[in-house]
Design a protein around this nucleic acid. Structure first.
Length: 490
RNA sequence: GCCCCCGUCGUCUAGCGGCCUAGGACGUCGCCCUCUCACGGCGGUAACGCCGGUUCAAAUCCGGUCGGGGGUACCA
């Protein structure tokens, strides 16, 4: 056994396709559980199905975990006492475990084809699906006959009789009659081990004490517990972990969030301007609450408060609106410097600033970011808000729809008046600009502020939605501001 | 079909027998703030699936029922 109260949890994704937000939630709960108890968080890759696994998917998962900041104590890239942590590199261990299981007659060779099993079930009228145990007690003559036919056997686990019960960490006591849990396959006819074998064997070998996983694995738990009993018997481990089955993360309607749903892809949140702390906070809320009247918290606060016993067993619907609201709350917790730093990659990608950033742009950004930091809810929104400040004059464009709405004949009169009021203004400061425009347009022309400044805003920033107008004009400078007013007038 | 899980506002949840004429958040509606947007403030809207039982007392415990989900692979 290891230190830290012995708490050892793991997350064990299969690298197939792009990582799902459900995986993130599972990883988060495992991580928080480990950190709360001062235990060990193990990261293991379950890539036993060579036909479905991809290196690209594996890389995405690593990238995702790094972005989220969920660090692991043992696993790929960091190693550990139970290395390797990719199942594709642990074949010897499984072969050995399987050999010992076979030697202790916890298993048997099965020569049946799926079609034969189905046919027998139909004939018998049995209500239990799955394997019927036909090959449990084969005579050596029968075996010889099957071998002579060229059949290659798979290895099945022999389920014991009786009731299997466990105290689920999130659902309480659950029990299954083993008559409803058929003998299942541990490895393919070609010798490749299956999930049913490698998952418990690795959990045993890695001394996992608590298995927190999706509800979809709940019905496979009785056979894992039975296997564990066998593993204890052959001396491969000395105890069975505790299980906790986490509720589903669902999409629209009543179905599990599928890979087809765009909101299912975890890395897409990063690309769409989410903060890792925002996504994590939202996902934590899907099944757990830190307090009756609080939604916003940091990872540290979650670690402090997390109790697996408090996890709600109900499936939870993913709500993008709330996810964005939680993210927005975290944006407001960030300093302007931090937001600037995090928005920079998006500004570069959108061509708002160059890469590397010119000194003049960096300076302008430092002055402009305070104006937009509190009015964006995602990092991606920074580009549209700031673009007008950085764009070269010859490339500056006014949004056509906004122009049509606000730069009509009346709007252009306003722009003309604004230009006249500003052309000799000194100094070119926010206060002076505001005073001049207020005097000329609101007091002078008797316009409502939103009408007066709306037209000027579109002419100068190119959009109806922008940072505060007067500050923006100060940053833009006299020449560019007046030039754009002039240009709007044709 | 059979086995298992789940059931509080539209959504996420608090609630673990009396504090509940059920609290918070998102959404939504109205108002305020306001140069746009965002923020912020105030107020409204809206839920214990149903039926029995236990109890002085049930959203909370038990049974049934209905509804939803998952499993039933030589996938994980």
């Amino acid at each position: 056994m290891s230190d830290n109260n012995g708490v050892r949890v793991r997350m064990a994704p299969s690298p197939t396709g792009s990582p799902h937000v459900g995986l993130v939630r599972t990883a988060l709960y495992n991580w928080a559980f480990a950190r709360h108890h001062g235990g060990t968080f193990v990261f293991r890759i379950e890539d036993t199905d060579a036909a479905r696994n991809t290196e690209e998917s594996y890389n995405s998962i690593i990238e995702l975990m790094r972005w989220l900041g969920l660090d692991w104590d043992e696993g790929p890239e960091v190693g550990g006492p139970h290395a390797p942590y990719r199942q594709s590199e642990r074949a010897d261990l499984y072969a050995d475990a399987l050999a010992r299981l076979r030697a202790s007659s916890h298993t048997y060779e099965c020569y049946c084809t799926t079609a034969e099993v189905d046919a027998r079930r139909k004939a018998s009228g049995s209500k239990v699906m799955g394997y019927d145990g036909f090959c449990r007690e084969l005579t050596s003559e029968q075996v010889a006959a099957f071998e002579a036919e060229g059949r290659r056997p798979i290895v099945r686990f022999r389920m014991p009789e009786g009731t299997i019960t466990w105290d689920d960490l999130v659902r309480g006591e659950i029990s299954f009659e083993t008559q409803f849990v058929p003998d299942y396959a541990l490895c393919r006819a070609n010798g490749e081990p299956l999930y049913t074998l490698v998952n418990p064997v690795d959990d045993a070998l890695m001394e996992i004490t608590h298995v927190l996983r999706g509800e979809d694995l709940l019905s496979s738990t009785p056979r894992q517990i039975a296997l564990y009993d066998a593993l204890i018997e052959i001396g491969l481990t000395d105890s069975t972990p505790r299980f906790g089955h986490l509720p589903y993360v669902m999409g629209e309607g009543n179905k599990k969030l599928s890979k087809r749903d765009p909101e299912a892809h975890a890395l897409a949140y990063r690309d769409n301007g989410f903060l890792p702390e925002g996504l994590l906070n939202y996902l934590a809320l899907l099944g757990w609450a830190i307090a009756a009247d609080r939604d916003i918290f940091t990872l540290e606060e979650m670690v402090e408060a997390f109790d697996i016993g408090d996890v709600n067993p109900n499936p939870a619907r993913f709500d993008m609106k709330k996810a964005e609201a939680i993210n927005a709350a975290h944006m407001r917790l960030l300093s302007v410097e931090d937001i600037t730093h995090r928005a920079l990659p998006f500004l570069k990608a959108d061509g708002v600033v160059g890469d590397p950033v010119h000194d003049s742009d960096a300076q302008l950004l430092e002055l402009a970011m305070p104006l937009v930091a509190e009015r964006i809810n995602k990092l991606t929104e920074a580009s549209a808000m700031l673009g007008f400040l950085f764009v070269a004059e010859e490339a500056f464009e006014v949004d056509a729809a906004d122009a049509e709405k606000l730069l009509d004949e009346k709007g252009l009169d306003v722009v003309k008046a604004a230009h006249d009021a500003l052309v000799d203004l000194h100094p070119w400061s926010t206060d002076a600009i505001q005073t001049a425009l207020q005097g000329a347009l609101v007091d002078g022309l008797g316009l409502k502020p939103r009408v007066a400044f709306g037209a000027v805003r579109v002419a100068v920033t190119g959009r109806r939605v922008s940072p505060p107008l007067f500050e923006s004009m100060e940053l833009l400078g006299r020449d560019r501001s007046l030039g754009r007013l002039q240009r709007a007038l044709g």
